[in-house]
Amino acid sequence: MRSVSRRSLLRGGALGVAAVTVAGCAEQEPRQAQRLAAEPPDPETMLIRQLIAGKERTVALYSSADSDRLTPFRQRHEAHLAELRRRLPRESGSASPASSAGAQADPSASPSGAATAGSQISVRDLRDMERKAAALRPRQLDGVSPALAQLIASIGACEAAHALALSRSL
């Protein structure tokens, strides 16, 4: 029978301690994640996420329209999206499109017609969506920070101009 040297025993013991330590960390991580998940984000972060989700949907709808004439409209929405993502608190880790997928989309980003991101959308649908978005913005200013209020108001003004421009192209 092969004897186990004292040195290898000690090494094994050290590895065992390391394994236990790693296992301990692994057990702690889910608990920390659960604790973080249980803490609701502040209302402003939730609103930004909602706005991001709505803008992602709007960009997708403009992309589905597949019209060069609408490209500047989509680009302005993409600029809104980029700025909103920039305003998202870093620790929320939600600056990626995938992470905002769980947020409830801004209700203004739903076209009134039956068109969805997967089907062709009409200019009339886009105009109605822009109108709804612009009308919603003043109501989203309650209780948010001054800087976010300014951003939302500015986005709303852009959407109001979009609605007018799309009306004229009908």
């Binding site: 809104h80 700025e83 612009a134 500015s154 003004a157 979009h162």
Partner: peptide, 20 residues
């Protein structure tokens, strides 16, 4: 702000992403 921007568009059809 929305009124100003739409009035401006009525005069000159230009749109900024972030009016103001």
């Amino acid at each position: 702000m929305q009124e100003c921007v739409t009035r401006s568009y009525g005069l000159r059809p230009e749109i900024e992403a972030f009016p103001g």
